[in-house]
Structures are given as C-alpha cells and as structure tokens.
C-alpha cells in the first residue's frame, strides 16, 4: 500500500533536463530520503509527485493508479501531501485557522454553508491537539507571519499532517532553522513516519543519517545511487563523485 512508482520520468525546462528518465520505486515503509547537490532536481521530483509540475515524459503511479497528469488537489485527496521548501502558509490567518482550514478539507466539509456546534468543537479540538503535538499551541492565536521561521516550517508540516496524508513529501524542512528547532523537527518527522510514508529531501547529513531508511542520490537529474544509509556511505560511485566529502553532497 501507498507505493509510489516512478517510470522513466523526465522534466525539461526549455532545453535543460532537470530530471532525465528517472525510475524509482518507493514501496517500503519509513523515511525515504533524496539527496544530491544543489540543482540536482530534488525539488522538481517532489513537485512532479505532488502535481505542481507535469512531467515532459514518463509516468508516476500511486498503488498502480496512474497519477502523472492529475491536478494537485486530486492527488492531495488521494493522500499525497507536500510541504514547500520556502514556507507557504495562510499569512493573514492565525496558526489555528491554518490548521482548521486543512481539517475542514480532511473532514470533507469545506463546501458546507452550515456547521453544527459539534462539528465546530470537533475541529477546534482536533486543531488544538495537532498544535499541541507539534508544540505550537502557545502560538495558537498568533498570525502566522509573526511566527519564527522555525515555527513556520513546523506549522508547514503540521498543516500537511492535518490532512492525514498517506505519503508526505517534505522539501528541506530543516533548512534555515535553529538547532533546537531542527532537533524538534527530527523527532516530529520520526513520529509522523510511523503512520505515514515520508519522502524527504534533505541536505543536513546529521538529519539524513538520523532519519533515513533508504536514500536515493540524484545528480544532474539522474539517479546515481540508491540504498540504505550504510550502503550509500560505502557506495564507490558516490564516493568517486564526492570524494567522500559529505559536505560536497550537501546542497
């Protein structure tokens, strides 16, 4: 269940291939990490899976259902949820309103023009629980644009989490945030991965080896290696590419 199958996926921007005939199967539970240098095509891959981009060729399947050309919102309904590399929140709303708007879609009441008290309370309760779980409950009634960048990034994941996704795509969730926030983030992602398949684009090697169950290495739009963290560490191709300096793999 919740397998993502990618077949010969290519993405062209003009003459430039951001991804070239990438084939990839994600069919085991846990956290799947995609690494590679800046410009390798990691974000592009996530965007193709979430529907923010439509590939030039190739196909994507979710449990043998083709989703290659489906619109973003249909994929979201199927259970594919994404966060953005740069935060993308409802800036003019409070933290809890951000969660509520995700929840009302999750409960499929987004089209209703009446809402009974029970459902209101239920959503309020759910939203509070989620915020508590993500340690954001202190900022519940604060506008999101007043939150710290770290909290914004956590909220970013909390919103996606609220839609109860089957597959969660995370694009560099720890970039630009403080060390304490990073630690918190690692814990959160670990927790989430117990119930949800996570595809994680990351550059922080600590985070990667802390979290990853499998790793895919991208370079110039092509996969140059795949395996468990220890396999990747030992892989001679990757070694030769990066001369053993993790730092260079880092974006």
């Amino acid at each position: 269940m919740n397998n993502i199958q990618i077949k010969k996926l290519s993405m062209c921007f003009g003459n430039m291939f951001a991804l070239e005939k990438v084939s990839l199967n994600i069919d085991t539970n846990g956290i799947h990490t995609i690494i590679g240098p800046n410009g390798a095509g990691k974000s592009t891959l996530l965007k193709l899976i979430s529907g923010h981009l439509i590939p030039s060729s190739g196909s994507i399947y979710l449990d043998s259902k083709e989703i290659t050309n489906l619109p973003i919102y249909t994929r979201a309904k199927l259970g594919i949820s994404c966060t953005y590399q740069h935060t993308n929140l409802f800036d003019d709303m409070t933290t809890i309103e951000n969660i509520k708007i995700a929840l009302q879609q999750q409960y499929d009441i987004g089209y209703k023009i009446t809402q009974n008290k029970l459902s209101k309370l239920l959503i309020l309760d759910q939203a509070t629980q989620i915020l508590r779980r993500f340690n954001l409950d202190d900022y519940m009634c604060q506008n999101t644009n007043t939150l710290s960048y770290g909290h914004q990034k956590i909220l970013e994941i909390a919103i996606s989490f609220a839609t109860k996704p089957l597959v969660l795509l995370l694009d560099e969730p720890t970039s630009g945030i403080s060390l304490t926030n990073t630690k918190e983030m690692i814990n959160l992602i670990k927790q989430i991965s117990k119930t949800t398949r996570v595809i994680l684009v990351e550059h922080d090697m600590d985070v990667i080896f802390n979290l990853a169950d499998t790793i895919t290495v991208l370079n110039h739009g092509k996969i140059i290696g795949q395996g468990t963290p220890s396999e990747i560490q030992k892989n001679p191709t990757i070694q030769s590419y990066y001369l053993g300096h993790y730092d260079n793999i880092i974006t």
Partner: peptide, 29 residues
C-alpha cells in the same frame, strides 16, 4: 453572513489567502 462564516466561507478566504496551498490541501479551487 452565514456563508462567509461557514466552512465554505473559510474555504473562499483560504483561496484568497493562498490558492496554491488550498490546492495542495485537496481543495478543488
């Protein structure tokens, strides 16, 4: 008033605030 304060109204305001996010939450914008 009922409409704008209902879940539907929240949906509309969500679209005004951030259409892309609404899409990725599964709303048929």
């Amino acid at each position: 008033n009922q409409i704008v304060n209902s879940p539907f109204g929240n949906t509309l305001q969500g679209i005004k605030s951030n259409q892309q996010r609404m899409l990725s939450l599964g709303y048929n914008v």
